[in-house]
């Protein structure tokens, strides 16, 4: 099956209109396979993607480019109990997950 998602890149355009990711620490809640993550992660200082779907997280890790290994991390976690200290992130993205 050949499916194209958002060939106009509207999602990325609007995301970058509302947020400047440059040198920011970003938490992405509901990152899934990282489809949205790859649209901004190169600009960010650090990106942490969380999801409860461990299969999706494995796909995200496999898809992660080698130059992003140290600045994009994925971990299994639920948004109700975030395993991070207070005031760790500059930006939080609810990625189709609220």
């Amino acid at each position: 099956m050949t499916i194209q998602n958002d060939p106009e890149r509207n999602e990325s355009k609007h995301l970058h209109t509302l947020a400047d990711f440059r040198n920011k620490r970003v938490l992405e809640v509901g990152c899934g396979e990282g489809r949205l993550t790859w649209q901004y992660a190169k600009e960010a200082q650090l990106t942490v993607g969380i999801d409860t779907d461990t299969d999706a997280l494995r796909v995200a890790e496999v898809d992660r480019a080698s130059d992003l290994e140290h600045k994009v991390l994925f971990t299994a976690a639920a948004s109700e109990y975030l395993p991070f200290s207070k005031e760790t992130f500059d930006i939080a993205v609810l990625a189709w997950s609220l």
Binding site: S79, L82, K86, E87, D90, V93
Partner: peptide, 16 residues
């Protein structure tokens, strides 16, 4: 929880 881990000048993006 998200508020807790954001800095005071932080922002939340809700996209859905």
């Amino acid at each position: 929880e998200i508020r807790r881990v954001l800095i005071p000048d932080g922002i939340l993006i809700d996209i859905r």
